[in-house]
């Protein structure tokens, strides 16, 4: 599949800021399931700084921007050829040992509700892969997809108690359950081509990867009860949403910030 991406994030401030610094993780991962045909990142009016590939295999770019400005726009456009790898991350070079992803973080802490869900879902599973599939399915049932039901600071435990959430909550819940069962798990940010069939999703998407012996990292999208396929573009990973955020930035000034995002992921007709 060939997917085109247009992702524009605009930060507006109620008063001009003196400047801003950003760390962007917005380049498609280098792995067997996807290949960037063209890709460009631009912070409008900004200067590109240091860039490098980190230990998790993500390409990181630093940007800075001198003010005063009242608006900062991050433009990402590109075209990626994808193939369905049934969720398995192959050909991805990284140095972080899987075990490092057993560490609990605030949003991925398993409370008693998540522990119960994990244990019940995993009961009767034949192997680790089966266990991960069952957990993903159980989360899809327990947390209904409802845009706007939770905010970016919500935790997996809160989403489960509420019974609804967005892709971030599904990924956090899956990670919490997997780690509770001693399976390394991490948060993945990326894009999803929605298609015409109207499956619930967000074009700017997130899912989880679980470490399965002999297979390596395998993606699970609990929001859509599936493993990532050719409709998915992988950008980067982390312990949780904040750690894996495609954009991390600081604006200098005591101002209120508003963020407007438009994302379009489309399939090129072949």
């Amino acid at each position: 599949m060939i997917l085109t991406v247009s992702h524009i994030s605009t930060y507006s401030y109620d008063a001009p800021v003196r400047g801003a610094v950003q760390s962007l993780r917005m380049t498609p991962s280098v792995c067997d399931g996807q290949r960037a045909i063209r890709w460009s990142i631009e912070v409008v009016g900004g200067t590109r700084g240091a860039s490098f590939r980190d230990g998790a295999g993500d390409w990181v770019e630093g940007w800075s921007l001198r003010g005063p400005v009242s608006e900062i726009t991050v433009k990402v456009t590109g075209e990626v050829a994808t193939t369905d790898m049934a969720g398995v991350l192959r050909g991805h070079r990284e140095t972080v040992p899987p075990e490092a992803y057993l560490r609990e973080t605030g949003p991925t802490r398993a409370d008693s509700g998540l522990m119960t869900l994990a244990q019940e879902a995993a009961a009767g599973a034949t192997d680790a892969l089966d266990r991960a599939h069952r957990i993903a399915a159980a989360i899809n049932e327990a947390i209904a997809y409802r845009p706007g039901s939770t905010d970016q600071f919500g935790t997996a435990a809160e989403a489960l108690a509420l019974g609804e959430g967005v892709c971030q909550d599904h990924a956090h819940a899956l990670i919490a359950c997997a780690r509770f069962l001693d399976m390394p798990a991490r948060y993945v940010s990326g894009y999803l081509h929605a298609g015409a069939e109207g499956t619930p999703n967000e074009a700017s998407h997130a899912w989880a990867e679980v470490w399965i012996d002999r297979l390596g990292w395998v993606g699970f999208d609990a929001s859509n009860a599936t493993c990532p396929d050719a409709r998915y573009i992988r950008l980067g990973s982390g312990f949780d949403a904040q750690d894996a955020a495609p954009i991390r930035g600081v604006a200098h000034g005591r101002v209120a910030e508003a963020l407007d995002v438009t994302v379009a992921v489309e399939a090129v007709q072949q």
Binding site: Q22, S23, G49, A50, S51, F52, V60, E61, G62, S64
Partner: peptide
């Protein structure tokens, strides 16, 4: 210092 780690890593 915002961005320090990116400079360090590169």
């Amino acid at each position: 210092v915002p961005g320090l780690m990116d400079v360090y890593r590169s």
